[in-house]
């Protein structure tokens, strides 16, 4: 059985280190906050303008002035700080955020990332993703290995408009964990019950 969304998030959480300032993208990356390992303290950044993002509020305690980058209601923590969006992206672009964990539509073997639009079909926009991949120390992508048509999302080169070139460091999919290295992708880990042959068959990119 390949990993489910929660197992992928739990695997991504193992990349966190004590004291890190981290930005989590929308979707599966948001679930990573449920799996922060015992004894490790990380500070979550929300790029609309907050450090120290807390959990969802209890019903009745939602505050329209307190949302995350996915526009979801959240809460603050004792060490929370608020700031404007220009300051927020200053810390992103300035390399102060240690890690970003993001979703993706496609990733290439050279670390190119596409996650913001499908021409003529789906126009969402890049939001803060282009700034994040350009600025943060380490970019971890969490996504399904194949799209809903069964085609590999781990490619030799991306077909969709790019979010950044050569920016991805680690790819965590439902089938395993791949590191971007010179010459291609290095298989680090297989999901439970997935064989290397199955992962290779599902991967268009070069595995070294």
């Amino acid at each position: 059985m390949p990993w489910d969304r929660n197992q992928m998030a739990a695997r991504a959480a193992k990349e966190l280190r004590d004291g890190m300032y981290v930005n989590l993208g929308i979707g599966i990356p948001t679930l990573v906050s449920n799996y922060i390992p015992e004894g490790i303290t990380v500070t979550l950044q929300s790029e609309n303008g907050m450090l120290g993002m807390g959990p969802f509020p209890y019903e009745g305690e939602e505050d329209a002035d307190l949302i995350n980058a996915g526009k979801q209601t959240i809460t603050e923590l004792p060490h929370t700080a608020y700031f404007d969006s220009a300051t927020s992206f200053g810390m992103i672009r300035g390399g102060k955020i240690a890690m970003a964990i993001l979703g993706a539509m496609e990733v290439s073997e050279t670390g190119d990332l596409a996650n913001w639009m499908i021409p003529g079909k789906l126009v969402k926009g890049m939001g803060g993703a282009m700034d994040l991949v350009a600025g943060v120390g380490r970019v971890v992508v969490v996504m399904d290995h194949a799209n809903k048509h069964g085609e590999s999302k781990v490619l030799k080169s991306c077909t969709l408009p790019l979010t950044g070139t050569g920016v991805v460091d680690l790819i965590i999919t439902n089938m395993g964990v791949l590191e971007v290295v010179p010459g291609g992708l290095k298989l680090l880990e297989l999901a439970d019950g997935v064989t290397e042959a199955e992962l290779r068959a599902a991967t268009e990119a070069t595995l070294v």
Binding site: D84, A86, I92, G127, G128, M130, A134, G135
Partner: peptide
Amino acid sequence: PQGTLAERMRAGGAGIPGFYTKTGVG
């Protein structure tokens, strides 16, 4: 890009007509 938009506004307000950023390269 979100940070570029925020910085374009901040820069305009600060009298800076242009700036260089690595966001969006490539």
